[in-house]
């Protein structure tokens, strides 16, 4: 990733980092946070974050590129940082009010939230058109082949896609009658998929 994400002006606004007491103002504040968060995640291809600490849990970028991603909840130039409680509130807003994120496991939020800067239906479309363009409709593909393999001609869109997100995307395709899932040998994980 050569270019850095351009934070909007409000990201340098000091009161933006503390929870506002007025309900309407707070709602606006949370909306703005969510908007920045979605743009930020899209720019750095982040698919999951911790709703408690705001740490990046998965990005499709290479590891050395991930190191260079600036922090979202901290602005060093104005020496402000959102506290964990406020971060959790922002993620809650993103999940329940905007439907743009989902807890991986509702019982244990520390596992992270999946951020939908691209909706599941859009992801399904991306995946399907990749399989179609590479002439692999109707053949069995392994999860490894779809996300990790370096020699199967993966596009940047789906390379290194997070497993939890891939599972959700595949389930959308199954619902559309376009895919069938194959379990791996141990029977716990999805090992492969046949997309037609």
């Amino acid at each position: 990733m050569s270019t850095a994400f351009e934070f909007p002006k409000i990201h340098s606004f000091i009161p933006f980092y503390t929870k506002q007491p007025n309900a309407t103002v707070l709602n606006n504040q949370l909306d703005s946070w969510c908007e920045i968060l979605l743009g930020y995640c899209q720019h750095y291809k982040i698919t999951s974050m911790s709703p408690i600490t705001g740490k990046i849990l998965h990005s499709q970028l290479e590891e050395d590129e991930i190191k260079d991603i600036p922090s979202l909840f901290e602005n060093k130039s104005i020496k402000r940082v959102a506290n964990d409680e406020f971060k959790t509130l922002i993620f809650k807003h993103l999940i329940s009010n905007q439907n743009k994120a989902e807890l991986k496991n509702p019982k244990s939020p520390e596992n992270g939230v999946i951020v939908f800067w691209r909706s599941l239906a859009e992801w399904a479309q991306v995946l399907y058109s990749f399989v179609q363009k590479t002439g692999q409709l109707g053949s069995v593909l392994t999860v490894y082949e779809l996300t990790k393999s370096t020699d199967s001609g993966l596009t940047d869109d789906i390379r290194n896609l997070e497993y939890d997100l891939l599972v959700k995307v595949l389930k959308v395709l199954v619902k559309q009658g376009k895919a069938q899932i194959l379990m791996s040998e141990d029977g716990h994980e999805i090992g492969g998929v046949k997309i037609v």
Partner: peptide, 14 residues
Amino acid sequence: PSTPKITAQDRAIF
């Protein structure tokens, strides 16, 4: 919609 069937061949290839 009917889901695509997984044949024995598919399994073998998988």
